[in-house]
């Protein structure tokens, strides 16, 4: 069962983590991986893996507790679109906006191709209850909601350049994104498909689906 308080606390934790972002980057600078150069505003800093690694992890795995997405194997077209949307403010996220604004178009292409070629995370999915399975696999056609898997692929493993994998993403991230589609703090995506669908989902739908696609075990309340 989902523990609502935990989610709220984790939300706060993400804010705290953002404040310590420079510190986190400093730690990674001492790692054996290529030395990062942190882009700063006004300078074309060049794409720098360590900038991303600060929150998304050195391998791009993301961070379940912070709700930071895995970038591994996401389609490059999609990643580019998102970075441009962060830069323009269409997709609202203070940290990602300032980072994306410092990237040139070429940097964005480099970053996107880097993560696109990594092997994606994939977890076995376990339905929390019948309703998660219903929405993900059967949809709710009485409200014109197609199954998530119809566009995101079986078990949410992604389809082509425009439909990113959901499988293995942190539950908190998925929940935040579906809520962001609903609130309009993230662009509705191609043909406004996602905005349109998210508007029809209840908070419970969103929580259940997020847990399902994260690969969370039903007993651990969201921990993978």
């Amino acid at each position: 069962m989902m523990n609502k308080t935990k989610y709220v606390e984790r939300g706060k934790a993400s804010l705290k983590a953002l404040l310590f972002l420079p510190l986190a980057l400093g730690v990674h600078a001492e790692s054996p991986h290529p030395q990062p150069r942190i882009p700063t505003g006004g300078e074309s800093g060049g794409f720098n893996l360590a900038t991303c690694a600060g929150c998304h992890g050195i391998e791009g795995d993301g961070n379940a507790a912070e709700g930071t997405p895995s970038l591994r194997g996401l389609p490059s077209t999609y990643l580019k679109e998102q970075l441009h949307a962060f830069a323009s403010g269409e997709r609202q996220n203070p940290v990602m906006s300032s980072i994306a604004q410092a990237l040139s178009t070429e940097d964005i292409t480099l970053a996107a191709s880097h993560y696109a070629q990594l092997r994606p995370l994939s977890r076995p999915l376990e339905a929390q209850d019948e309703s998660a399975n219903d929405l993900a696999i059967h949809g709710r056609w009485s409200e014109n909601i197609p199954p998530c898997d119809d566009c995101h692929g079986p078990e949410g493993k992604g389809v082509g350049e425009n439909f990113p994998a959901l499988n293995g993403q942190p539950a908190l991230y998925l929940e935040n994104q579906l809520q962001a589609f609903k609130k309009g703090s993230r662009p509705s995506g191609p043909l406004k498909l996602m905005g349109n669908i998210a508007n029809k989902l209840s908070d419970t739908d969103i929580r259940t689906l997020s847990l399902y696609y994260s690969g969370s075990s039903p007993m651990t309340g969201g921990q993978p």
Partner: peptide
């Protein structure tokens, strides 16, 4: 309206795991 899923040449699209998606 259609190319996004059915492709520029009407070929449809496969999911990353190889199943036909569109």
């Amino acid at each position: 309206n259609c190319e996004l899923c059915h492709g520029a040449n009407g070929q449809g699209k496969r999911a990353n795991d190889g199943h036909l998606a569109f």
